[in-house]
């Protein structure tokens, strides 16, 4: 069952893996933005997570410890952002950009001496005979556990934001920090925790790049994945399941264009390479037309700092 030299089953299986880092990072950023904070430092937190996770995994020989350390590394770096924007009320856009540059430099410094080392292998989840089912087997039952964890995290974030008190508080803080403050919620403290969660998710995504996707450490290896994650949040109009779709779409197209080339397709490479970005533009146009900004679903207090003056 091939189309133009491409086996769709293998394609779907590989796009699920390719999408994990951007999906995790985008999911974290979604929660941060839901709380009204725009953190453009995703790329920096990812790369720091990548090297933190790599160092821990190499040192302990355990990928699980590596992923935990990656999340911790991203979270620690995000606390720098949280301190600057929530305590001393610095501009979020500028601080976020600075965080990316700082993260890239810091990761390169931490990574000295870790080039050319192979990390411990993250195994596939043993589903036994299930993995041999034609079509469904390779797609559903032949991945490492992080692929399943990332989907579970999407479901978790969706449930928390939609159906729990915590989700309601986060959304309140992001829609109107003054109202949330008047109700007695500690706006900056809640935002700080959301930022830390976003950092941990970005770090987890970064660790997936250095431990599974490209199992090694190379300087600057996330290569712009953080920026794509930021785009996916907008693309997903701040809804968790759409983050999953967006990540699969972006991951899918990048895998598809390489597969089409390898399969000898006649479609020019340039069109394939720009297609993810074209899709984003089209979706943004469709979403922002007609019913206006409300249909875009952007948190009303996004990017505004809060100071409890009254």
């Amino acid at each position: 069952m091939d189309f133009g030299g491409i086996n769709p089953v293998i394609l779907v299986a590989s796009l699920m893996v390719a999408a994990v880092p951007i999906m995790l990072a985008a999911l974290g950023e979604l929660v941060v933005e839901k709380a009204g904070v725009l953190n453009l430092g995703v790329e920096g937190m990812m790369i720091v997570g990548a090297i933190s996770g790599f160092i821990a995994a190499v040192a302990t020989g355990s990928p699980v410890v590596g992923f935990l350390a990656g999340a911790a590394g991203g979270a620690v770096l995000s606390l720098v952002f949280a301190f600057l924007t929530q305590v001393v009320l610095a501009n979020q856009v500028a601080t976020g950009l600075a965080l990316t540059m700082f993260g890239l430099g810091l990761s390169s410094l931490m990574g000295q001496g870790y080039n050319g080392i192979k990390p411990p292998l993250t195994g596939k989840v043993p589903f036994g005979p299930l993995a041999d089912i034609p079509v469904l087997g390779p797609i559903l039952f032949a991945h490492d556990w992080m692929v399943y964890a990332s989907i579970a995290l999407v479901a978790g974030v969706w449930w928390v934001l939609r159906a729990t008190r915590l989700g309601l508080i986060i959304r309140a803080v992001g829609e109107s920090h003054d109202a949330a403050h008047a109700l007695g919620y500690k706006v900056n403290r809640i935002r700080l925790m959301c930022i830390a969660f976003g950092g941990a998710m970005a770090g987890l995504g970064g660790a997936y790049v250095s431990l599974v996707r490209v199992p090694q450490w190379v300087d600057g290896m996330t290569a712009g994945a953080g920026w794509i994650a930021l785009a996916i949040v907008v693309f997903a109009s701040w809804r968790p399941w759409r983050v999953l779709i967006g990540a699969y779409l972006f991951g899918g197209i990048s895998v598809l264009q390489l597969s089409l080339q390898a399969g000898g397709s006649a479609i020019p490479v340039e069109y394939l390479s720009m297609s993810p970005y074209l899709v984003t533009i089209v979706v943004l146009v469709i979403m922002s037309s007609g019913r206006g900004r409300a249909s875009l679903n952007a948190p009303a207090a996004l990017g505004q700092n809060f100071h409890a003056a009254r």
Partner: peptide
């Protein structure tokens, strides 16, 4: 011969994907 244009000198994720795409195509 199958040629895949990655349009980058350095992007480990993409380089790995390109290798995978080639292997999937039987290279």
């Amino acid at each position: 011969l199958s040629v895949v244009w990655a349009y980058t000198w350095f992007d480990p994720g993409k380089e790995a994907d390109a290798a995978k795409a080639l292997m999937d195509a039987g290279v």
